[in-house]
């Protein structure tokens, strides 16, 4: 039993990462402040906006609604892990990232990492989404800039390539 910081080890984007967390530290704050992975954004701390969405042991979750200590030993995928390995500037860009750019699905970019991680899991679940069902599937992520249409376009466009990539076991 403790309220002091404890060591937390995660497998983040395929690599072990260790840091210290008070029990009250959320996974979102741990990723951002302790591990310096600031691509995961915090927009409400209530699990409502979806900006902090990461993939925890295969499931898309709100990292603001998980304490870091709860995730100890788990595998976490964040936006930073989407692109594959490569020399600086030559990383293999993930098909979702490409599709978001091609479809003009990014404006301020604050919600984007959360959408990417939600979309990644949605496309792992199935790759035959119709627009209405996909809109509902993405309904837990808020965007204030795009009006969502191009985000839906992007995810649909990326589906075949993501499926192919995941078939290879992904880039984790």
């Amino acid at each position: 039993m403790t309220r002091d910081p404890v060591r937390v080890t995660l497998r983040v984007n395929g690599r072990p990462e260790t840091g210290w967390a008070e029990p009250r530290t959320t996974l979102a704050d741990f990723l951002r402040q302790e591990l310096g992975l600031t691509g995961t954004h915090v927009g409400c701390e209530q699990g409502v906006c979806g900006a902090c969405t990461v993939v925890l042991d295969g499931a898309a979750v709100r990292s603001c609604l998980v304490f870091a200590v709860q995730a100890d030993g788990c595998a976490v995928e964040t936006v930073e892990g989407l692109a594959g390995e490569g020399a600086p500037g030559r990383e293999a860009v993930h098909p979702l990232q490409t599709a978001f750019r091609e479809a003009s699905a990014v404006q301020c970019g604050f919600c984007t990492p959360g959408f990417l991680m939600t979309a990644l899991v949605a496309l792992r679940e199935r790759d035959d989404w119709d627009r209405a069902a996909l809109r509902e599937r993405l309904g837990g992520n808020l965007c204030r800039c795009t009006g969502y249409q191009t985000v839906v376009d992007a995810v649909l466009a990326a589906a075949p390539e993501v499926r192919a990539l995941e078939g290879e076991g992904g880039r984790r």
Binding site: T38, T40, Q97, V106, F110, T112, P113
Partner: peptide, 14 residues
């Protein structure tokens, strides 16, 4: 957009 690659990689600087 030239702004997108960094934002899509999670390397924005908010």
């Amino acid at each position: 957009r030239s702004e997108d690659p960094a934002l899509l990689a999670g390397r924005g600087r908010f």
